[in-house]
Amino acid sequence: MSYTLKELNYWNEKIESKVGEYGLNCYPQEFDIIDYNDMLSYQVYLGMSSMYPHWSFGKSYDKLKTLYKYNLVGLPYEMVVNSNPCTAYLLKENSLLMQILTMAHVYGHNDFFKNNRVFKENTEAELTLEKFKIHSDRIRKYVNEVGYEEVEKLLDRIHSIKLNIDLLKFLKENGQLLTWEKEIIGIIIEESSYFIPQLETKIMNEGWASFWHYRILNELEIPQGMYVEFLTRHNAVIAPSKEKINPYYLGFKIFVDLEKRYGMERIFEVRAVERDESFIRRYLTEELCEDMKLFQYRTDDKNFIIEEVWFEDGCKAIKDTLCKNLGLNSIPCIKVKGERNGKLILEHVYDGRELELNYAGETLKNLVYMWKEKITLKTQLNGKAIEVICSKEGEISYV
């Protein structure tokens, strides 16, 4: 490390002082400094120090380690856990300036976790770490009692629809499941519910943290030798991408614009009550679309065709497309329509986006494994109503 713990404590105290001056309302903050192997592990396990065993975590670890080895991806500078106290992991290899910037960024996340209504209504930060530890212990208990293979099979099936929480709840309450199977489904429902607020507020959360690390470091009186690195690092974090929307960039630009137009009090109000979809619809203005030169395109064989640009009515179309792909809007909405003689009928809420039928069929097989009877999924393909049917034996057919 090119810095000492005494230096980190010094800068952390200065940052905390600025946090208090600006009125950020945070949980007590704790930092752990870890190396890149540990950061890979925490990234795979979503920041949780205790997670249940499953092969997919090992697969993700090997993939990330390979990508990192060949410089195809970079490691996160930090990871922050929505808990009370708030836990954050800092990468040991960071420079001193990067640690200072990262700590300021973390306090932005901390404030967002504590005060945004999506988190306040759907998570209990005081119980986070304890709850995940209890869940891990329970699943390990069932591994010992019924065998790793049986538990893993069930987890494989649950993972395929873990964000379709209403459908999982229906299976738990109405399916022909053993007690241990119902409890594991309940565990995944709780853990998925914990992470959904992060999916629903990614742009706001990262934009808010970026807004505050930029504001705080500009007033910290960091040494002149660090200032160029600060600007370089900050600009890298919020740099627009040529291929997709950078949530740090988009969120930062909107919060800066809001503070400029309405003042500091308004951005705290927005932070408290919005989620990404409402944030985009209400505060991504035509002027911002023009400033960021946003456009919408589609592919036609090997060609890219621009469909919408920021001027005229393009901004509304761009916002609609953005919102359609935010958070839970990015996954198919599947509803339970009824049950006949044990046979389950599901319906895909069609919004212009068709299901990939191979994936739909494989997912139905996973559901049949838990439901143990025939399942029919109603959807649309090429403008016509169709049914994807999975028999009790796991055979797929289309009507």
Results as ranks from 00 to 15, higher is better:
284 L>V: 05
182 K>E: 15
188 I>Q: 07
153 K>W: 05
260 K>G: 03
27 Y>G: 03
37 N>P: 00
11 W>C: 01
285 T>F: 08
18 K>G: 01
358 N>F: 12
9 N>C: 11
382 N>T: 08
117 R>A: 09
115 N>E: 09
111 D>I: 00
315 C>Q: 10
4 T>W: 14
136 S>E: 12
195 F>A: 01
134 I>V: 14
259 E>R: 13
9 N>A: 15
108 G>E: 10
88 A>E: 07
6 K>A: 13
78 E>P: 05
262 Y>M: 03
323 C>S: 11
344 L>K: 10
256 V>N: 09
251 G>A: 01
377 L>N: 03
290 E>R: 10
359 Y>G: 06
92 K>Q: 00
370 M>N: 14
260 K>E: 12
157 R>G: 14
190 E>P: 05
342 G>T: 11
114 K>F: 08
134 I>T: 14
152 E>A: 01
134 I>D: 13
63 K>E: 11
330 S>F: 02
115 N>C: 06
50 S>H: 02
110 N>Q: 06
10 Y>S: 13
47 G>V: 04
90 L>M: 08
326 L>R: 06
48 M>C: 05
139 I>M: 02
70 Y>P: 09
247 P>M: 02
387 E>N: 10
213 H>L: 05
58 G>H: 03
335 K>C: 01
258 L>R: 01
60 S>Q: 14
19 V>Y: 00
362 E>W: 02
100 I>W: 01
338 G>M: 11
303 N>K: 12
387 E>T: 04
331 I>S: 04
247 P>H: 04
132 F>E: 05
51 M>P: 05
390 C>S: 11
299 T>I: 02
288 L>H: 06
210 S>W: 03
16 E>K: 15
308 E>W: 10
297 Y>A: 12
125 A>I: 05
10 Y>G: 13
354 E>A: 11
334 I>G: 04
249 Y>H: 15
79 M>Y: 02
185 I>E: 10
125 A>M: 10
